[in-house]
Structure formats: structure tokens, C-alpha cells
């Protein structure tokens, strides 16, 4: 195995493993799949459009509108993704954060996996083996969304009534509480580690709060889009200054 030289369970040089050629190949492999998928969908839409009174021009306009509106959010995702490169390496970030998953779930999943092994994500004891475990758990977690989609979509299409009878009050309360609960306990769990962790968590939460208030006051949706990236980068700067104080 050509990786052998770089592989060491106890090494904290996780990028040696995380940026290995095989992981790059898997990440790059997802790109053409999505491109082919998009081409097939676009063609199918073009063929169906005239039959329901839509012009090809309208389909093209929709495509362009989607592309333009994705510019801001895509660059906002890029900003967060770059901040995570040192913890997960480029291939995992491209697939897990950029495609398929999202920042919040994937980072939470990796942290939960590391905790279950008694390790600390990104911490001084974050080894190559811990990275492997975190990536496996993130991927399996992400796969569950895809599997749920593959199973549920045909059922929903048939208008399966059992699925529609899920108590709407539960749907309103439980998922939201789950999300807030997960991010709350993972966030607060960082506080006892050191006073710098407190600064990192506190400054990031504070900056986000300020950005949310500003976004509401001046009614500028782009602030909400960029808030996560801005909060993470600014609080990393503050945290870095704190480590030198």
C-alpha cells in the first residue's frame, strides 16, 4: 500500500491520511456523477416543457436564475469549508461539507463520533485513527439521509397516507428541539476543556447573535447567508489572539 509510510494510528498528522490519493479519487468521483445527473435532468425538463406550455427559454431562464442565486450561498459555503480543511482534509470537506451534507450536521456528527471513542475532534490527541472513525461516522450518518430519500420518495409519490398521518405537532416540535439540543450540548461540552475554548465558543455565538440582529434590522438577507462564515473566521482570529495573550 503506497500509504503505508504515512499511516500511523497514533500520529496526529491527520492530513497525511485525509489528503491521500484514494480519498481524493473518491471526492473527485462525486463531481461527474452530479454533472451527469444535472445534464439528464436538464434534458428531461427541456423535453417535457413544451407539452405543458413552457418554452425552452423559460427553462433556460430558470436555470440561469438558479445559477445566479447560488453564487452567494456557494461562496459562503466555501468560506466555512476552507476553515475546516485542517481538521478533515480537502477530499472529506469537498464531499461532506460542500456536497451531500452540510456544515452543522457533519461537524456535529464528527464530534459525536470522536466523543464516543473518548477522543477530541481537532484536539491534541486527535489521531489519524480518530479521523478515520469520524469520517466513517459522518459518511454513514450522511448515507442515512440518502437512504431515507431513496426509500421515502417512491412511497410519498404514491401518496402513501400512513406517512402523511405523522402527527404534525410532533413534526413541529421534535426535530427543532433535537437540533438545538445537539448543538447546545456539543457546544457547552467544549467549555470545560480550557478558557480559550470558552472564548472560541462565546465569541462565535456573540458575533452570530449580532449578525442576526443586524440582518433583521436592516433586512439584508445576504448577511444571514454569510453569517456563519463571518462568525467562524472572526472568532478564530479572536481565539488565535487569545492563545498568544
Amino acid at each position: 500500500m503506497y500509504l503505508a509510510a504515512a499511516v500511523d494510528n497514533n500520529s496526529t498528522d491527520i492530513l497525511a491520511v485525509a489528503n491521500s490519493p484514494f480519498l481524493w479519487a473518491c471526492a473527485i468521483g462525486v463531481f461527474p456523477v452530479i454533472i451527469i445527473h444535472s445534464v439528464i435532468y436538464m434534458k428531461a425538463a427541456q423535453i417535457a416543457a413544451p407539452h405543458i406550455g413552457m418554452t425552452h427559454q423559460e427553462i433556460k431562464t430558470s436555470c440561469r436564475a438558479g445559477a445566479i442565486s447560488a453564487l452567494g450561498p456557494s461562496l459562503a459555503v466555501v468560506m466555512v469549508a476552507v476553515a475546516l480543511l485542517t481538521v478533515f482534509g480537502t477530499p472529506a470537506v469537498l464531499v461532506r461539507i460542500g456536497l451531500i451534507g452540510s456544515v452543522s450536521y457533519e461537524t456535529a456528527a464528527a464530534a459525536i463520533a470522536a466523543n464516543s471513542a473518548g477522543a477530541e475532534l481537532g484536539g491534541p490527541t486527535y489521531t489519524q485513527a480518530d479521523f478515520g472513525l469520524a469520517l466513517a461516522a459522518m459518511t454513514l450518518g450522511g448515507a442515512m439521509w440518502m437512504i431515507a430519500t431513496l426509500i421515502l420518495t417512491p412511497l410519498l409519490k404514491r401518496g402513501d397516507s400512513a406517512l402523511r398521518k405523522v402527527n404534525p405537532a410532533i413534526m413541529l416540535v421534535v426535530p427543532g428541539a433535537t437540533m438545538v439540543g445537539a448543538f447546545m450540548v456539543l457546544g457547552l461540552g467544549e467549555l470545560p476543556r480550557s478558557w480559550i475554548h470558552v472564548i472560541a465558543f462565546g465569541s462565535s455565538a456573540l458575533i452570530m447573535t449580532v449578525l442576526m440582529i443586524i440582518a433583521k434590522r436592516v433586512d439584508r438577507p445576504w448577511i444571514k447567508e454569510w453569517a456563519l462564515g463571518i462568525a467562524i473566521i472572526l472568532s478564530l482570529v479572536i481565539t488565535h489572539l487569545a492563545t498568544r495573550a
Binding site: L84, V198, A200, A205, T209, I232, T239
Partner: peptide
Amino acid sequence: YILPTVMGAVLIQ
């Protein structure tokens, strides 16, 4: 410190 930083902002969001 990336984990506490991400969690602080994501929690508020």
C-alpha cells in the same frame, strides 16, 4: 478550536 467556534455560531443559527 474549530469545533467550539462552529458550534457557537451554528447553535445561535
